[in-house]
């Protein structure tokens, strides 16, 4: 039997309150979804505990066990182009269980790539294609930075950099009620989590977690600068323990907010420091994190004269 499911099908089980952040326990996978799963980014993110790029709640870093395993366990297989056959997988005869992440399709007993990029594999037989792209495709539960563009009754329209604007209800902020409304101005920057994101529906943003707490989400304070980077760069620096970020922090004290949609907001005490940090991060567009890490201090010094 094959269960080819999207993330939403997996999670449409009765939603506890606002956000279901917990994946089903590991044993449930084995019983409910035998052999083959087609997953998309977010679910696969939770599964692959060994991935280097993950989405963490803003107030805490990666869980302890991840810090140990980070960087290990993901193996780059090769570069694939759309249409390339990754492997044969027949549900009738194949016995091993595989997981398919973003960029892969399963069709006629074959697993094929749909995106160009680096095919990667984790120890748990999870395959995905790591693509460098600039356009964001909304995924449920990802943290993004949005710009308020329109006020529409009880909701606001927020531009999150994908095809369609997301909406946010005035009630989805911490301590908000019908009496204590949260007023947003046009142009405000919001850091929130996507609660609804699928191809057929308008994305919906919230600024609270399942316990109705903001935990870092909400309107970004005035000051600071917002800029765009490619999505792979954003995934690189979303990890607060990234060596590149730690190197920069030796020199400057800064606040960094990274949205999975490639938007990055930086603030420091001095404007020139902000600009220096911004330029340092933009270096990642053109070089690997290791290379940028080596150059970070030198570039920062040059920019902060």
């Amino acid at each position: 039997m094959v269960f080819a499911l999207g993330c939403d099908a997996l999670l449409t089980a009765p939603r506890p309150r606002l956000l279901a952040v917990l994946p089903p326990p590991a044993s449930a996978w084995a019983t409910c979804y035998t052999r083959l799963l087609v997953l998309n980014v977010t679910t696969f993110d939770l599964l692959a505990s060994t991935l280097t790029t993950r989405c963490y709640p803003p107030h805490r870093g990666p869980p302890e066990e991840d810090r140990v395993t980070q960087g290990g366990g993901v193996e780059a297989v090769r570069v694939v182009l759309p249409g390339d056959t990754v492997m044969h997988y027949n549900t009738e005869t194949s016995t091993e269980r595989i997981f398919l992440g973003p960029g892969l399709r399963w069709e006629d007993g074959m697993v094929r790539a749909a995106k160009p990029g680096l095919l990667k594999k984790t120890q748990r037989q999870l395959y995905f294609v790591d693509t460098h792209q600039k356009r964001y495709i909304p995924q449920r539960r990802e943290y993004v930075i949005g710009i308020v563009t329109k006020k529409k009754g009880d909701a606001h329209r927020v531009d999150i950099g994908c095809g369609e604007d997301a909406t946010i209800s005035y009630l989805s902020f911490e301590n908000a009620s019908k009496k204590t409304r949260r007023y947003l101005n046009l142009g405000d920057l919001l850091y929130g989590q996507l609660m609804v994101a699928n191809k057929d529906m308008e994305p919906e943003l919230v600024c609270i977690d399942i316990y109705d707490q903001a935990c870092g989400m909400g309107v970004l304070p005035p000051g600071g600068v917002l800029f765009n980077v490619s999505l792979h760069v954003a995934r690189e620096i979303i990890n607060p323990h990234s060596p590149f970020l730690l190197t920069m922090s030796q020199k400057v004290k800064y606040t960094l907010v990274v949205g999975m949609n490639g938007r990055v907001w930086v603030n420091t005490t001095h404007q020139k420091d902000t600009v220096a940090i911004m330029n340092c991060i933009l270096m990642l567009e053109h070089m690997s994190p290791e290379e940028a890490d080596g150059k970070a201090l030198r570039v920062l010094e040059a920019l902060m004269l």
């Binding site: 749909a114 460098h132 600039k134």
Partner: peptide
């Protein structure tokens, strides 16, 4: 299209 990372059946 490959550079933009758009999902395609084939090149």
């Amino acid at each position: 299209l490959l550079d933009a990372g758009i999902q395609m059946k084939t090149t």
